[in-house]
Nucleic acid binder design. Structure first.
Lengths: 216, 216
DNA sequence: CCAAAAGTGTTAGGAGTACACCCATGG
DNA sequence: CCATGGGTGTACTCCTAACACTTTTGG
């Protein structure tokens, strides 16, 4: 920012977004199959170039909307990757984001150079282009950490949900099982949940539905 | 990364480094007085453009060395700031880093456009250019959090130090006082410290010197 | 012997963890 | 009446936090 003004026109800036969801008891990431070189046919994270007059956050939201039709999601900057060799086309610095979406909420519109898209379990990834496997790893770690010492994960569920659903969500993200009584005691003691009067009628004993207290 | 290849030559990429130290019982940041416009005469973080063939980390190390003569320090990527209006000269995305240096270890060489440099208590900042006050705030928060749930702060002390020095360091970073007995019990129980046989002879009762177990 | 900083244990409360049974419903 | 998932309490351990006096040295 200080120092001499060497102009670095060679560097391009992109955003890439690790869209995560939990479905079928698995933590999954949204990948798009590339229709163009390089890595044509391989899967990659949604993302694209940052435009001249938008913030980085705005670029991430825009790409997410354009490439996957996903809107109104939780989005957080993750880390910036800038190895000179990370993109064979030239020098590209990418600001990685991660997003959380409720299961079954992504229309998955294919973009111009995206032949196909799909959800993949983070432990069952296909061949993924660029340094995107590393970026996905960062996102998974971040989500797990956040879940440990904040009370997140809310963004991955519908407005009303049972405690069992919430617990299964946590288990899927953390990759281990949790004690039912301890989980309920802890999550209820945070005061972040409000019990609704509705029950989920599931064929067996009805389960109470909860909602998150509208923080902010 | 996917999507159409709109070239964004307008964006420039810099690194800015929040160099932190603890001196005189205060958490301080290294600022350089700008010798050129914009914000001439104001203080700013050391930093500069990322070169064509270096990683972001390498750029941060290089700028730190060039502008302040600081070498071999702890350095970690913090966050990336990309508001289109953050730099009046044009579109500049900056990858912010923070560095930790032991007190009194920075030669503070003035760079070409840096008329002067100095350490400022993070609660007593002068007028600071760009969005650098915000970046400093991010760094201070990150350091405080890291100190809470990892056992960091090691990088801010000389190789050998007394437990009282270490405690004062923690107190300066956290901005509150800590109980001596609890602090010692906790820090010693981590096994990260090794007691040397040397004592610091300070005029009063001698204090044992400790060192950090060479992790990594 | 006085001033100054080093060094040292115990107790109480809260958080986390392990663990097993009864309940309500639909079929 | 049975199968299925919903729902509940207690005991133990460990970590944290509060709290005060003795020791060693130099002057």
């Amino acid at each position: 920012m200080t120092k001499q003004s060497v102009h670095q026109h060679e560097i391009q800036v992109t955003v890439d977004i690790v869209v995560l969801t939990v479905d079928d008891q698995k933590l999954k990431v949204l990948l798009i199959q590339r229709g163009i070189a390089p890595f044509k046919g391989q899967f990659a994270l949604p993302g694209g170039f940052v435009l001249a007059n938008e913030t980085l956050d705005a670029a991430a939201f825009r790409e997410l909307s354009e490439e996957t039709g996903t809107e109104n999601v939780y989005l957080e900057q993750l880390y910036t990757f800038g190895d000179p060799k990370r993109d064979p086309r030239g020098r590209v610095v990418t600001v990685a984001y991660y997003a959380l979406v409720p299961a079954g909420n992504s229309p998955l519109l294919a973009g111009t150079d995206a032949a196909a898209a799909g959800w993949f379990g983070v432990d069952e990834l296909p061949v993924v282009a660029f340094d995107h496997p590393k970026i996905i790893g960062y996102a998974v770690n971040r989500l797990r950490n956040k879940l440990e010492y904040t009370s997140v994960g809310f963004e991955l569920l519908p407005k009303k949900f049972t405690l069992t659903k919430l617990q299964m969500l946590h288990e899927a993200i953390l990759g281990r099982s949790l004690d039912k009584r301890n989980f309920r005691r802890k999550i209820l003691s945070t005061g972040l949940l409000i019990a609704s009067k509705e029950m989920e009628i599931t064929g067996r004993k009805p389960a109470r539905l909860y909602a998150f207290r509208n923080l902010k």
